[in-house]
Design a protein around this nucleic acid. Structure first.
Length: 755
DNA sequence: CTGGGTGCAGTTTTT
DNA sequence: CTGCACCCAG
């Protein structure tokens, strides 16, 4: 079928949906590098979906003579959720195409290479049995931190002068609270904070494609960093581990092996046609490592690499995302493929089908009003977004709520939502979304808003509220473990240890005490376990840590709680955390090597303090495991494919809201100032040592990049709104200067009315 | 009602 | 270090 026939089937005459000429042009992209600037609400997911369908089903067309085998199409999105969404859309359209032409069923859509780059890299390395990925355990964030803490010489060895000198060179990795400035010349940061900082350094070296040799040649602490990197890579190989960043570099490594080349280029047989098309969504958040992977995948002529994104919506610098990859895509084609910039086809999608015209003109103005965003190279040149949504009546679509205090602001917000619901202006509370920088339910973040909504009887959906550790079953289970391993809180209360025992420890104990008081089943088990330990000081336990947790979970009330899906999901996550911890090998202090057969899960009674587990284990459990899980602030579970369940007001971070839209959007945190953080420092530092000098970016000063990041983050938030956009701030936010309120003081106030 | 000084409380975002 | 509440001066 031709492209015209395909489009006629997808959008039959008279159907509500169709493609605009701009969108259609992209679907007809003839091949070679394609560079799509897609503004907010411009239908880029639809365009990607139809482009994939075109590759799969079109033949005999001037643009495409033959169908592309599904396994030759490599499509990546930023999140798993977005990947599922794209796949669903493809499958839905496929179903309607099959009605018209049942023979299309012969195309096996399940062979499409579609997912996040991390997911695809993991799958492909396994599928091809890549030698550098055999029997490797992919560690999540938690395991990586434990691994670094356990193995890296810098953290393991107690050698303050060396550590202090090293960390002083990277002192911007630490907030004053993490490493008090007054102590910086005499004391290194805590073990745990050093671990976190080292993990960031190691990850960013990979993501930013830093030349380790270049760092080493620089000497000084950068040389030390290069040595630490080599040490880390060695530990990973020796222990058959991999982390999220290294997963990508191993995939890139794989692509340069004969096996990888045959995956990429095919072997001339129908069974292995190689990769022919690479489509990348959310390209503005790509990092230099990923950029190199995409160009490697597309290295076969004619280099069918279609990237789609919006540089104005880049918001993942903290993860190594470099908006420069998007802004200078034409130069990348030159650097990687030797193609002149003119050979890159440029497309833009500037029609916005999402928002009220007042909202579109507002966010256009907002972005353009900052002098910084008008400077050369700040944004890809593209026309302003054009409002195309047809709305029945005109009304002021943007407003503001000025609070006298945080609590007053929250109250006014909640009343506004309640009024919208009761007056029928919205059909459901889920149509009113609250967007914040952080959705943690603390006084400066979502706390007051959530409390005010609940006071008015409105239910809230806030899965990323980091309250996992506040759930009864989580506190109770951790408390029960503590009740067995440290029965009298001797270790926790010992002043020698007390300082570094997590402050949440009493919370876990109290939760367990309450459960024990109410449930004899649990009480009996804990008492029996305590008696058994007391009876045999110094003896190994029958159960390891995970088994201990399972025993506890088989007792009341935990066993009945298993019937509740939400609680069961939390048990599963806690079990995973315990499993990751238990599987960490224990190193012999003398040799530095893993002791065979011994892991963190291994339990033995203390000979010194009868009734307790031995001290080293307790220390590590309190300081490593508990400190991490409390500090990381685990999120509660969220429903997989539901944006927000009906009847509840969604509370989201601006990051989470990327790609989504809501009828009424309320944006808080309007008083924020520009903050230069470790991301900016790291980027500046590492940009001097690029692996690929042809792709080193001349960066602006940190402060300018930090300001642009903040402008973009709020631009994303503002462009989510369909019918109304309401700013939530204190009076001072609107009268003084704050970036979310525009480039000058009072900028936003002149453009909005108080509600 | 605006602006500045002081003192306290809390320190993201994610594959 | 930052944002916010609070207080006081103009």
């Amino acid at each position: 079928m031709t492209i015209n026939q395909l489009l006629a089937l997808l959008y039959p005459p008279g159907s509500a949906k169709s493609l605009t000429p701009d969108q259609e042009q992209i679907v007809r992209h003839p091949g070679g590098p394609g560079w799509v600037m897609a503004g907010p609400g411009s239908g880029k997911t639809e365009v990607l979906t139809v482009t994939v369908l075109r590759l799969l089903y079109v033949d005999g067309d001037p643009v495409q003579a033959d169908r592309v085998p599904p396994e030759s199409i490599f499509v990546t999105t930023f999140t798993e959720k977005a990947a599922r969404n794209l796949e669903d859309r493809i499958l839905n359209y496929r179903a309607s195409l099959l009605l018209a032409d049942p023979t299309l069923a012969s195309v096996d859509v399940s062979k499409l290479r579609i997912g996040t780059l991390h997911g695809l890299a993991n799958d492909l390395l396994q599928e091809f049995r890549a030698p550098n990925y055999q029997n490797v355990r992919l560690m999540d964030e938690f395991e990586q931190a434990l691994f670094v803490r356990e193995h890296m010489s810098l953290i393991k060895q107690k050698n303050p002068p060396v550590e202090i000198a090293f960390w002083q060179a990277f002192d911007w990795m630490f907030t004053p609270l993490k490493w008090p400035p007054a102590t910086r010349s005499t004391k290194p940061p805590s073990r745990w904070n050093s671990t976190q900082a080292l993990v960031s350094l190691l990850n960013r070296m990979v993501e930013n494609r830093v030349s380790v040799a270049g760092l080493r040649a620089h000497g000084g602490q950068l040389q030390k960093l290069a040595e630490l990197f080599d040490e880390y890579v060695l530990h990973l190989r020796n222990n058959y581990r991999c982390d999220f960043s290294q997963l990508q570099s191993r995939f890139l490594e794989f692509l340069s092996t004969p096996l990888g080349q045959s995956f990429r280029d095919g072997d001339g047989t129908a069974a292995n046609p190689g990769i022919r098309w690479v489509l990348v969504d959310e390209y503005q958040d790509t990092n230099p490592m990923q950029e190199e992977i995409y160009f490697q995948l597309a290295s076969r002529s004619p280099h069918n690499l279609l990237v789609v994104g919006d540089d104005d919506q880049a918001m993942y610098r903290f993860r190594g995302g470099s908006v420069e990859c998007m802004v200078t895509f034409d130069q990348a084609c030159q650097a990687f493929l030797g193609m002149p910039p003119a050979a890159v086809t440029r497309y833009s999608l500037v029609d916005n089908f999402r928002s009220h015209a007042g909202i579109v003109s507002f966010f256009n103005d907002y972005m353009a009003a900052f002098p910084l965003m008008g400077t050369a190279g700040a944004r890809s040149p593209k026309p302003a977004i054009v409002a195309r949504k047809v709305l029945p009546n005109s009304y002021p679509a943007i407003g503001r709520i000025e609070g006298a205090s945080k609590e007053d602001l929250a109250l006014q917000f909640a009343q506004t939502v309640a009024d919208l619901v009761s007056s029928g202006k919205v059909n459901d509370p889920s149509e009113c979304c609250l967007l914040l920088k952080s959705t943690k339910e603390s006084p400066n973040n979502a706390g007051p808003y959530v409390a005010a909504l609940r006071d008015l009887g409105l239910d809230v959906y806030n899965p990323r509220n980091k309250t996992f550790m506040d759930q009864d079953e989580v506190k109770g289970l951790l408390g029960a473990i503590l009740a067995i391993v440290d029965p009298n809180r001797r270790y926790a209360l010992d002043p020698a240890n007390g300082g570094s025992v997590p402050r949440a420890e009493p919370k876990f104990r109290d939760a367990c005490d309450a459960l024990m008081a109410a449930h004899s089943d649990l009480r009996d088990y804990i008492q029996d376990a305590r008696a058994a330990i007391l009876a045999k000081p110094g003896a190994p336990f029958d159960a390891n840590l995970q088994e201990l947790a399972f025993h506890i979970m088989s007792r009341e009330p935990f066993s009945s709680w298993q019937a509740d899906p939400e609680r069961r999901a939390r048990f599963a996550r806690l079990t995973n955390l315990l499993e990751a911890y238990s599987s960490t090998p224990v190193l012999d202090p003398a040799t530095g090597l893993a002791r065979p057969g011994v892991t963190r899960g291994f339990l033995r009674g203390s000979a010194h303090f009868p009734g307790e587990v031995f001290g080293a284990w307790l220390g590590s459990f309190y300081h490593l495991f508990l400190t991490y899980v409390v500090d990381a602030g685990m999120n509660d579970d969220e429903e997989d494919d539901v944006i927000c369940p009906a009847g509840r007001v969604p509370v989201m971070t601006m990051h989470q809201s990327k790609g989504l839209e809501f009828p009424f959007v309320f944006v808080g945190h309007m008083g924020e100032g520009v903050k230069v953080g470790p991301s900016h420092h790291l980027e500046t530092l590492f940009s001097a040592y690029p692996s690929n000098p042809a792709r080193s970016f001349a960066h602006r000063p940190d402060g300018e990049r930090a300001e642009m990041d903040m402008i973009r983050q709020y631009y994303v938030a503002y462009s989510r709104a369909e019918y109304a956009l309401i700013f939530l701030g204190l009076k001072s936010h609107f009268t003084k200067h704050a970036v979310p309120c525009g480039p000058t003081k009072g900028w936003l106030r002149h453009r909005t009315q108080p509600l």
